[in-house]
Amino acid sequence: MEKFQTVISRPAPLDSSNVDTDQIIPKQFLKRIERTGFGQFLFFDWRFNDDGSINEKFILNEKRFEDSEILLSQENFGCGSSREHAPWALRDYGFKVIISTSFADILFNNCFKNCILPIVITEEKLDYLFKSTLEFEDYQVKVDLENLILSDNKNFTEKLDIDPYRRKCLLEGLDDIALTLIHEDKITLYEKASIE
């Protein structure tokens, strides 16, 4: 996996709660057998009109948020299915950080496997980020995982609370399976014991 680097970007404000995985990547795009190329289908039904043209009203289609690497969303982001196509699409589209007040469990796990950092903050602070990114043309948020600091170019600083093991895996781009195989003797022992 690639290593997670510090992200500096104007966040894209997606003002919806319970954004489910069927919205993040609709089912007709789950039939591919590759891990790549899903970004073009991200939020497909919201980004595009029925005739295939771009939905100008959808926030991510606004020029000012075109290159955002940080996504803001309301509570329970990523509920629904276990499809890892959702984080594949988010990452391929360009998002490296997602900030919300809460995440669905499986998507939260899947993000870490794909070099995306999901950040949980309070409603009050999320409101502030939403307002700021809509208000200030020069607005930028910095996500520094190394030093566990979330800050902006105004006066906002927040200490990040990230599981230390997951932080290490993201920063070092560690391959989960290789890490597990360090314990292979223990797995074998467990298997032997369960037969007896």
């Binding site: 299915s81 276990s82 984080p87 499986i106 496997k113 794909n114 989960d176 399976i177 597990t180």
Partner: peptide
């Protein structure tokens, strides 16, 4: 339920 990376794992 698990994601595809975990399926591989």
């Amino acid at each position: 339920g698990i994601g595809t990376s975990e399926v591989e794992h």
